[in-house]
């Protein structure tokens, strides 16, 4: 219990520190903050006026404090001040917890944009994760439990091939077969039914591309950990106790073999949330990664900050989960 509390405090501290770094990096990126807010076609006087009104000359720490205040709902978002005549309106009001500001790219509050995209990516990531984990565990365990067998060689070779083909290539190849050739699946996945394809059918290809790419990698991790455990003296002890192979695998090998890959598997969540830009681009999927890319290219500061913070939160949470799971699996660190 004390350990959990300590970890929670550490998690908060990490987030706070990271948010400061994110703030510094985005605010210092090339170009004037006010200019970024107003866009390229605003007049210089408007920009200067906004610059003053927003107190952008204040020291960095003061501005960070103000940003944090807006985020936590302690102070009102200055951009929504009607006196600025920016016409930025948020139906939630200008002061509430979790106020990420206003997206200049989508001309809408960040909260209106962010969560839809995150939900879409979570759907994609969740489905991919649900395929990757069982598939790679089964393949990795079967291959690793008899290292050097024919099954092991087949699985190992197949996983290397799967990991080596980049997502854009496998995406294009699969699209060529199933979209152009067979016409079974849609080529794009905008997650609306205007094209006549069901949402489910739109998800098939992106999930397959992600699963193919990642399952090979995870399976190889599981395989090598399993093979290592199978060579341990305590497995020999178990066999020479007279246990059957099934019991040896299930009771003695699996848990030990899962200790090392467990962290790697949870790290895949981070990658699936923030790092699947390529797949989202290939299939025109309205996801989180693509939004982050668009926001960065446009210079949408509030959205970048919000998205980065969300990605960080996910990363820190999976880290905590993997640490907890590690302690659960491995009695030696308890």
């Amino acid at each position: 219990m004390r350990y959990l509390f300590r970890r929670a405090v550490e998690l908060l501290a990490t987030l706070l520190l990271a948010s400061f770094l994110v703030f510094v990096v985005t605010e210092f990126s090339p170009g004037n903050v006010a200019r970024k807010t107003l866009g390229a076609f605003a007049l210089q006087e408007q920009v200067d006026l906004l610059y003053q009104r927003l107190h952008l000359n204040d020291p960095l720490l003061v501005r960070y404090g103000r940003w944090l205040g807006v985020l936590t709902g302690v102070i009102a978002d200055p951009l929504q001040d009607p006196a600025l005549k920016l016409d930025f309106k948020d139906p939630r009001g200008d002061r509430y917890f979790g106020n990420f500001g206003y997206s200049t790219l989508y001309k809408a509050p960040v909260n209106d944009v962010l969560w839809d995209r995150l939900g879409n990516t979570a759907l994609l990531a969740g489905l991919a994760f649900a395929v990757i984990v069982p598939l790679s565990l089964v393949l990795g365990i079967l291959a690793g439990m008899r290292a050097g067998s024919r099954l092991d060689r087949i699985v190992s070779t197949a996983s290397i091939v799967m990991t080596s083909v980049p997502e854009f290539a496998s995406g294009v190849i699969l699209a060529a077969i199933f979209v152009v050739g067979l016409g079974w699946l849609p080529g794009t996945s905008p997650l609306d039914t205007e094209s006549g394809w069901s949402i489910a059918s739109q998800l098939v290809l992106p999930v397959t591309v992600l699963a193919l790419y990642d399952a090979g990698y995870v399976a190889r991790m599981v395989r090598s950990s399993m093979a290592e455990v199978m060579a341990k003296p305590y497995i020999r002890t178990a066999v020479l106790k007279g246990l059957n192979f099934r019991t040896v695998i299930l009771r003695h090998a699996l848990r030990n073999a899962m200790i090392a890959p467990f962290t790697v598997i949870l790290l895949q969540v981070n990658w699936l949330i923030g790092g699947v830009v390529v797949t989202e681009m290939v299939f025109a999927y309205p996801g989180f990664g693509r939004m982050l890319l668009d926001a960065s290219l446009f210079g949408d500061i509030s959205l970048i900050e919000a998205a980065t913070l969300i990605a960080l939160l996910v990363a820190v949470t999976t880290q905590l989960l993997s640490d907890l799971g590690y302690r659960l699996l491995n009695p030696q660190v308890r």
Binding site: P233, Y234, R236, T237, N330, Q332
Partner: peptide, 11 residues
């Protein structure tokens, strides 16, 4: 020979 490795560490 080596009791430390002959026993399963997670059971």
């Amino acid at each position: 020979q080596e009791p430390a490795t002959a026993l399963n560490p997670t059971l």
